[in-house]
Design a binder for these strands. Sequence first.
DNA 1: GTCTATAACTCGATAGAC
DNA 2: GTCTATCGAGTTATAGAC
Lengths: 208, 208
Amino acid sequence: MDKREETPDLSDSTKKKIFDAAHEVFTKKGMDGAKMQEIADLAGINKALLHYYYKKKEKLYETVAKAVIGKAVPVIRQMFEGDQPLEEKIRRFIDFYIGLISHNTFIPLFIISEINKHPDRFFETIFPQEMPRPEVFFRQVKEEAAAGRIRPINPKHLIVNIISLCVFPFVGKPMMRLVLGMSSGETLIFMEERKVEVTSFVLAALRP
Amino acid sequence: MDKREETPDLSDSTKKKIFDAAHEVFTKKGMDGAKMQEIADLAGINKALLHYYYKKKEKLYETVAKAVIGKAVPVIRQMFEGDQPLEEKIRRFIDFYIGLISHNTFIPLFIISEINKHPDRFFETIFPQEMPRPEVFFRQVKEEAAAGRIRPINPKHLIVNIISLCVFPFVGKPMMRLVLGMSSGETLIFMEERKVEVTSFVLAALRP
DNA sequence: GTCTATAACTCGATAGAC
DNA sequence: GTCTATCGAGTTATAGAC
């Protein structure tokens, strides 16, 4: 009785199933490595339907890529443009960013690979939005240093350090497991620990 | 007069030219993105010759991949198994590793991407060698902490932190340039600075 | 060993029935 | 909307002349 209207846009329409499958395959294998057949199989539909809904492979790819990028930008914006005190900002960024990535493990690698291979496509069609501006963050770092509350540090390097510490272990997870000889279970625990570890490492490095 | 013998293996035989071209193309574009035609063009020879020397694309790929991995392992081994004092070890590792990567920018991304896409192939055929064991390094970290010479820290996280700080900025360079709004020239300087910055960041974080 | 020509195959895309 | 069948472009791989 209550099932009359057809969901006008979202939910699990065929289009959504295709998008989800494409998301999984593209983030794992990139534009070149992904095959339309594999996406169709994963979505449980026929290859021809992909084209019915998304015309071309590249169009489907762009749709996925935009959605992926859209998730990461607000977190960076928060750190750059927010008005919390510096330490608070750093704590929140690390916590939030590691949390985001651990639920979307392949995303950073996806973004990075595609920027490297097709910088033009990336910047023109996939990422046309305004980047967060880091000036506020820069100023905060300088002020804290001037007041003697942190060790003086080049703020650009600080940002890069924080992002590196959060992102790289996910990007390089298999390599890391190899180097440290960790089982799958140990790796999970290890990644959980990193929120705390990275926070204390960064704050320790900033002590005056 | 002194040119009688034919170089039995190396130097710039056709095989070497193919290998060099393949190295460049594969590290930039990965297994899927690389095309045999492009490799042939870059080597200045015919496409058919690739198959004469290396039978299959995958074989050529494996040859390149093994060579690439082979460069990174000794540096890690040095840090893990060498017998210098801890601080000395860390300083040398950072200096050496950033140096290595800045002359082979595409390599980390290449390794990481391929592990993610084809973990089986990677671990079975490309990387069959013995990994450096980190036990010596672990012990050193614990001893220094026990002696109060550094802040106590989980040695696994320390390793991952150091590697992240060295490698990620290269892997994520285009993203970083975007976020920080740096020109090509600024980026070059920035990367040069990192040897010093990373070293002081890590040592600062380790102060008791 | 190196080339030209072409076979064999993979994969994105389309036509057309239901 | 969804499927089956097939085309056609782009690539890997091979045959065979030189």
